[in-house]
Amino acid sequence: MKVIFLKDVKGKGKKGEIKNVADGYANNFLFKQGLAIEATPANLKAL
C-alpha cells in the first residue's frame, strides 16, 4: 500500500515521502499513530 508519511518514522520514511509499505503495517501502526495517510489521488493532490 502506498502511504504519505506525515512524520519521520525511523527506518521507514521521512515526512512528505511517498512509499510502499505492507498493508498490515500501514493499517495497524502508521494510520493509528497518525504517522501516515493512504496515498489516494485526492491526498496526493492535496500535497
Score class of each variant (00 low, 15 high):
M1A: 02
M1D: 03
K2Q: 01
K2S: 06
V3A: 00
V3G: 01
V3I: 12
V3P: 00
I4C: 09
I4L: 06
I4M: 11
I4A: 04
I4G: 00
I4H: 03
F5I: 01
F5L: 08
F5P: 01
L6S: 05
L6E: 04
L6H: 03
L6V: 12
L6R: 05
L6M: 11
L6N: 05
L6T: 12
K7Y: 10
K7R: 11
K7W: 04
K7V: 11
D8M: 02
D8V: 03
D8P: 03
D8R: 07
D8L: 02
D8A: 08
D8T: 09
D8Q: 06
V9A: 08
V9T: 14
V9M: 06
V9I: 13
V9D: 02
K10A: 14
K10E: 15
K10R: 13
G11F: 12
G11Y: 11
G11D: 14
G11H: 04
G11T: 05
G11N: 15
K12F: 06
K12L: 13
K12E: 12
K12I: 15
K12W: 10
G13P: 00
G13E: 06
G13V: 05
G13T: 02
K14T: 05
K14W: 09
K14S: 11
K14N: 12
K14F: 15
K15R: 13
K15T: 07
K15I: 10
G16W: 09
G16Y: 15
G16K: 02
G16Q: 05
G16F: 08
G16L: 10
G16T: 03
G16S: 07
E17A: 07
E17Q: 11
E17M: 04
E17N: 04
I18A: 04
I18W: 06
I18C: 15
I18Y: 02
I18L: 08
I18G: 01
I18H: 01
I18M: 13
K19G: 12
K19I: 11
K19P: 00
K19V: 13
N20D: 12
N20I: 15
N20E: 11
N20V: 14
N20L: 10
N20A: 12
V21H: 07
V21C: 10
V21W: 02
V21T: 04
V21K: 03
A22Q: 14
A22K: 10
A22W: 06
D23M: 08
D23I: 14
D23V: 09
D23H: 13
D23T: 15
D23F: 09
D23A: 10
G24R: 12
G24L: 07
Y25K: 06
Y25W: 12
Y25M: 11
Y25G: 08
Y25C: 09
Y25F: 04
A26I: 03
A26G: 07
A26F: 15
A26K: 09
A26D: 01
N27H: 03
N27D: 04
N27F: 08
N27W: 10
N27G: 10
N28L: 08
N28F: 09
N28I: 03
F29I: 13
F29Y: 10
F29M: 09
F29L: 11
F29G: 09
L30D: 01
L30G: 00
L30E: 00
L30M: 05
F31W: 05
F31M: 06
F31I: 13
F31P: 00
F31A: 05
K32I: 07
K32H: 15
K32E: 14
G34D: 12
G34A: 10
G34Q: 10
G34N: 15
G34P: 01
L35R: 06
L35C: 05
L35Q: 10
A36T: 00
A36V: 08
T40S: 11
T40V: 07
T40Q: 06
T40I: 04
P41M: 03
P41F: 07
P41H: 02
P41R: 05
P41Y: 13
A42Q: 07
A42T: 13
A42D: 11
A42E: 15
A42K: 14
A42F: 12
A42P: 11
N43Q: 05
N43T: 08
N43G: 06
N43P: 10
N43E: 08
L44T: 05
L44K: 15
L44F: 09
L44G: 06
L44N: 07
L44C: 12
K45H: 12
K45I: 07
K45Y: 09
A46W: 06
A46N: 07
A46L: 12
A46R: 11
A46H: 01
L47A: 03
L47F: 15
L47K: 13
L47V: 12
L47M: 14
